[in-house]
């Protein structure tokens, strides 16, 4: 450690001590990590706090935005945030390898039957007609080893394509996936909302297969809180989960306002959001943000089957006292 760094850390420690001493008199603050684009209930809490009786009165929320769920797992493990958005895989990885103890307290979006399912697209003039045609091709995926990889690998194996050896897999963030496909940098790429809606409106590409073919009710993102935080502050955690429930109810009840709220967070134009948000071609949302533990268990089983994780029980993430819905 360099001396300058040490000095800085000393200053940091002192400042931290002073700050925490000061805040002992203030109301409780919960540190929350979020990401974009599909956490409408939290966006409501962020942008319309006056609609929640407790926020700013009995407790405060300190929001930090992260680049994806994986850094948030690290932040949870490091104790830098109390609650954060998680994917099933990132949370399980944190629990298995990172010693993270956390509860799943709510669920943001899942793949409802007939609704939007993350899919892999090809160009209309592509020679790839079936999954088996992917052999030897370059395929884009949003996150290598991410939550979509499990079901993706299953579908490929079923079609006789080895996802490890037969294709070249490159990481292509959702934002660039459409352009990467059109420019021919990848032969197939995965699509997510709102990018899928934009790409479909433009035309020229179509769906090759979607994740729902591998398994139904995939839970994409959920809300997790550190177990030590919940155990120490049960009332605060409960108030937070109650507001997530309440936020989800309001988000579903008032679509026009939700469009505005999401626009304020994502900065995506309302006309684009209007093409899919909370419609049939969107992800599914539980009316009270309740986690579907059975579906999550099914996903954990699939990750275990594909060798991405050891066998896990969803029970360790379950705390009956602090889980949506809380009214």
């Amino acid at each position: 450690m360099r001396p300058t760094m040490k000095r800085l850390m000393l200053i940091a420690a002192t400042a931290g001590a002073v700050l925490s001493a000061g805040s002992a008199f203030a109301i409780d603050t919960i540190r929350v990590g979020f990401t974009i684009p599909a956490e409408e209930s939290k966006y409501w809490m962020m942008k319309r706090p006056e609609r929640f009786p407790d926020i700013g009165k009995t407790y405060n929320i300190e929001w930090t935005q992260f680049q994806g769920t994986s850094p948030m797992t690290q932040a949870l493990a490091a104790g830098a945030v109390d609650c954060a958005t998680q994917g099933v895989l990132s949370l399980a990885n944190g629990a298995v390898n990172g010693g993270l103890k956390a509860y799943i307290v709510a669920q943001h979006v899942y793949e409802k039957p007939g609704g939007f399912s993350v899919y892999w697209a090809v160009k209309d003039d592509s020679p790839i007609k079936t999954v088996a045609d992917l052999k030897g091709k370059t395929v884009g995926i949003s996150v290598l080893g991410g939550g979509t990889y499990g079901p993706f690998a299953m579908i490929l194996r079923k079609a006789g394509v080895d996802p490890e050896k037969d294709i070249k897999l490159v990481e292509t963030g959702f934002a660039v996936s459409e352009d990467a496909l059109r420019q021919g940098r990848v032969d197939a790429v995965n699509m997510n909302q709102p990018f899928a809606a934009r790409a479909e409106a433009k035309g020229g590409i179509h769906k090759l297969f979607s994740l729902s073919e591998a398994m139904p009710n995939i839970v994409h993102i959920l809300e997790a809180c550190r177990a030590d935080f919940v155990d120490k502050n049960p009332a605060l955690a409960k108030a937070y989960v109650r507001d997530i429930t309440h936020g989800m109810e309001m988000a579903l009840a008032d679509r026009a306002e939700t469009l505005k709220v999401v626009n304020e967070v994502l900065k995506a134009p309302i006309p684009v959001l209007d093409t899919y948000l909370l419609k049939d071609n969107d992800f599914g949302r539980d009316p009270k943000a309740a986690p579907n533990f059975d579906a999550i268990q099914l996903m954990l089983d699939i990750y275990a089957e594909t060798g991405m994780l050891p066998k896990l029980s969803v029970r360790q993430f379950y705390n009956p006292n602090v889980v949506a819905p809380i009214e």
Partner: peptide
């Protein structure tokens, strides 16, 4: 780390995602 299929940065990000510290 941002987008790759090989290199030390890729090894790092792959390990970080699965908490192989």
């Amino acid at each position: 780390m941002i987008s790759s299929t090989d290199g030390l940065g890729y090894l790092l990000v792959r390990a970080a995602r699965s908490f192989q510290t």
